[in-house]
């Protein structure tokens, strides 16, 4: 466990999570959630939990993003004010 890498990853995760809930473009929000999942997978691997990180990378960054984009194709892209 390397502390500087952990701190950098966790700071980036907090920034990305805040951006994902404040952004008004839903496609951008989905992409930010994908980046969030990927960084989260890196944090899991950093904590020596490779299995959880593997699942997070496969499900969170892969399948969920595809599902959310497919669901977004049924609705409008911009959130109402």
């Amino acid at each position: 466990m390397i502390v500087p890498i952990d701190l950098a990853l966790l700071t980036l995760i907090v920034i990305i999570a805040l951006a994902a809930i404040t952004v008004r473009d839903l496609l951008s929000a989905i992409m930010l959630l994908c980046a969030y999942s990927f960084l989260m997978a890196m944090v899991w691997v950093e904590m020596h939990s490779v299995d959880v990180g593997f699942t997070e990378a496969a499900v969170g960054a892969g399948a969920t993003t595809a599902f959310l984009i497919a669901a977004l194709s049924r609705t409008v892209r911009w959130e109402k004010k």
Partner: peptide
Amino acid sequence: PGGGFQGGVIFAS
């Protein structure tokens, strides 16, 4: 690391 669930998700992707 890995298993049926993760492999299935990767195959589906």
